[in-house]
Design a binder for these strands. Structure first.
Lengths: 204, 204
DNA sequence: GCACCCGCATGACATCTGTCATACGGCACT
DNA sequence: AGTGCCGTATGACAGATGTCATGCGGGTGC
C-alpha cells in the first residue's frame, strides 16, 4: 500500500461527523484529513488539504452538499465526490449526479459501504444504489419551472398568498396561478400536499 | 477498571448507528453489546444482553425512542437511559424526562459528550444541555389537548377537512373547530403554520 | 416568421378554511 | 351542587385558496 487515501468529511452534526470519522479511522488505507460542518467551507478545505475524496452530506448550513460538490468539481476536477444523505430521494440523486458526484449513498445503508465507496470512486468506479437509480429514472425529471419551485419553497412554511406576493414581488393572482399549476403537475389537491410531494421527490 | 460498561445502541440509520458504535468502541471502558434499528426491539434486546446503558435515538420505526425509554424504565428500572436526537426540541426533552431518561443529548453536540454521558449516567448523574433545559422550562407545557394534537398530526400531510372528518369519525365542523383552537393556542394564522410550530416545539 | 413555452397579470367563480356564537353531555374538582 | 374544561356538534359569515379563461411580452427552436 502506498500513502493512505485522504478524505474530507462534511456533515453538520458533530456527533455523526466524528462518529463517521472514527469509523473511517478503523481502515488502514484511509485517513480523514479534514472535517467541516458547513457546505460553504468545503471548497477551501479541499484546497488546503490535498484531499483525494470528499464525503458530503446534503443537508448542511451554508450551502447544500450538492452545491458544494458542484463547486469542488469545477475547481478541483480530480477530486472524487461521495454524496451521503439521510433521504434517498430520487431527485437528490439526479441533482447529485448532475453536480458531478461519483457516488451516492444513503445513511441507512450498511456502514461497510462507506469505506468501500471511498475505495471504489478512487479506482474510477461510480457507486449508486440500483434501486434508487431505477426510481430516479422511472419518475423522470423535475416537471416544475424555476418560478414554481421558488414559490413552493416559499409557501412551505405556511405563508399566505399575500405574503408570498409581497416577498417575491408578484401579484397575488400570479402566486395563485403558479401554485395552481404546481398542484396540477404534482397531481395533488392543495399547496400543503404539493410541498410534501415536491420534498419527497427531491424537487424542492 | 472492572468489567466494561455494556451499552445498547438504538438508531435506525445503519451507517450512523455503526459509526457511533465505532466511536464508542474506541473507549476502553465501554462495550457496545447490542444494536437495534427499531424502537420496538429495544426492550427485548435490553433484557437479552444485560445492558447497563441504553442509547436511544428518538426518530425510529416501530416506536419512538421516548416510548422505548418508558418501556425499559418500567421493566428494567436499573438500566440507565440516554436519549439522543437530531432535533433539540424542548418538548422532546420534556417528554424524554417524563419517560424516565437520565440524559438528553443532541446530535450536534461534540462526540466526546457521548462517552462522557454514558459514564455520568452510570455514576448516577443526569446529563442535560442547560440551554435546552432553560428553553423547555421557559416555554411551558404543551397547551394542546389530545384531540387537537391528533388532528394536527393528521392534518400535517395536507388532508382536507372532509378527509380528516372521515378518518377520525368527526363532523367537518368539529375538525374545523379543533384546528381553529389549535391555531389560536399556537398563536399562528393557519393549519400549516400550526403544524410547523407544534413540530418545532416537539408537541406533535 | 411562426409556434410554443415561460413569466407575469387580471377578473370571475366555486370551494375550502378559519372564526364565532351556541349548545349538550360527561368528567373532575371544590 | 356548582364551576369549568373537554369532546362533540351546528349554523352563519368572512376571508383565503384553487380553477379557469384570457391577455401580453420575451425568448427558443424550426
Amino acid at each position: 500500500m502506498s500513502s493512505p487515501i485522504k478524505v474530507l468529511l462534511a456533515e453538520d452534526q458533530s456527533m455523526v461527523r466524528e462518529a463517521l470519522a472514527a469509523l473511517l479511522g478503523l481502515e488502514d488505507d484511509i485517513e480523514v484529513v479534514a472535517q467541516v460542518a458547513r457546505g460553504d467551507e468545503v471548497q477551501a478545505a479541499v484546497g488546503a488539504h490535498g484531499v483525494d475524496v470528499a464525503l458530503l452530506d446534503i443537508e448542511m448550513p451554508g450551502c447544500t452538499g450538492i452545491e458544494a460538490a458542484a463547486r469542488v468539481r469545477r475547481e478541483f476536477p480530480q477530486v472524487k465526490l461521495v454524496v451521503l444523505t439521510t433521504f434517498g430521494r430520487p431527485g437528490y440523486l439526479r441533482s447529485a449526479m448532475e453536480a458531478g458526484a461519483d457516488a451516492f449513498l444513503v445513511k441507512d445503508a450498511p456502514a461497510a459501504q462507506l469505506a468501500a465507496a471511498v475505495r471504489k470512486v478512487l479506482a474510477g468506479e461510480r457507486v449508486i444504489d440500483p434501486t434508487l437509480a431505477a426510481a430516479a429514472l422511472a419518475e423522470g425529471a423535475n416537471p416544475l419551472t424555476d418560478r414554481e419551485r421558488e414559490i413552493l419553497r416559499a409557501a412551505a412554511d405556511g405563508s399566505t398568498n399575500a405574503e408570498l406576493a409581497a416577498a417575491l414581488h408578484l401579484s397575488q393572482g400570479t402566486v395563485r396561478n403558479y401554485l395552481s399549476t404546481a398542484i396540477q403537475k404534482l397531481a395533488v389537491r392543495n399547496r400543503t400536499e404539493a410541498v410534501r410531494m415536491a420534498r419527497e421527490k427531491g424537487w424542492l
